[in-house]
Amino acid sequence: MTSMPLASIFRRPEAGSLVGLLMVVAFFVVTGGVEFLYLSSVGSWLSRAANLGIIAIPVGLLMISGELDLSVGSMITAGSMITALVSGFYGLPIIVGIMAALGFGILVGMLNGYLVVRTHVPSFIVTLGTLFAVAGLLLGLNIVLTGTTTVTLMAPELAKTLFGKYFGQGFQVLIIWWIVITAAFVFFVHYSPYGNWIFAIGGDKVSARNSGIPTERMTILLFVLSAVSAAFVGMSQAILFQAVQATPQMTLIFNTIIAVVVGGVLLTGGFGSVIGIFFGTITFAVVTQGIYYTSFDQTWSNLIIGVLLLGAVLMNNTFRKMALTYAPKKK
């Protein structure tokens, strides 16, 4: 193995998603030109990736452990709405707004987790329920409290610098958060004993519990992480965009699942990696942003996005099969 470092890199679970990413970047450099690789363009698609990626990693880990979280679609709105309500409409210090938003994330995450663990209702249904319940709650509260559906927030400079600002040529500060959070998750999942628990739960929950893994606590923790991440991104978006609408971001649900699957996580659970999801998210962002640099008629953009994402997943699949069936030649 040590004599073939390149080959062993290609057999890692994230190799397929890296190849998929390189494929779509190459596609846009060819069809869109070098402008696509200018620093300001890179900032553009990385900013999109960061907003999606912070949520996609915990959602991906849930999928590895065999669960889904659809409630992120309204949790992101919850994060921005609560921050704007507390610190914009009521004018409390921004830190109170941030804490309230993240606290609400913990609450909904625990609710999701407990309902899934205790009732054994599929998480698809449970989180579908909380998706609508939270969206309805926010809207109702918002209308009762403010009388409108849009809340404005003027955040202080420090909060803007930390969560909602651009640096360099259009790099959102969230990109730094995303990289730090990804690194933390890589450690948590791949270099601490807890990571293997997630894979074990996704592979076979009963055996995992029998071998002493606290599967229930782990599942609840993952739900809390995904709800809090969505609230965190929502909070940052409120600080950046300064106006919040009470509409849930339904497309975010699809987008996280796409990023996770393009990143090589199996929809059935038990297989995937954090770095893979990281690359999958960039791939998704590159594909959706790249379209604007090409000369294609924009009317066709959905078609091109669909075909490219399918291509990236197929590429990833092929690599995974090759990696899993590989046996070194006898010397």
């Binding site: 402008e35 900013s47 259009g170 849930p248």
Partner: peptide, 21 residues
């Protein structure tokens, strides 16, 4: 594209990309 509806980041970056190119 429909992946960007309701997503302010997607709209902002799309406008920026279009103005750049």
């Amino acid at each position: 594209p429909s992946t960007s509806f309701g997503d302010p980041v997607a709209i902002a970056e799309a406008v920026k990309a279009t103005l750049t190119s």
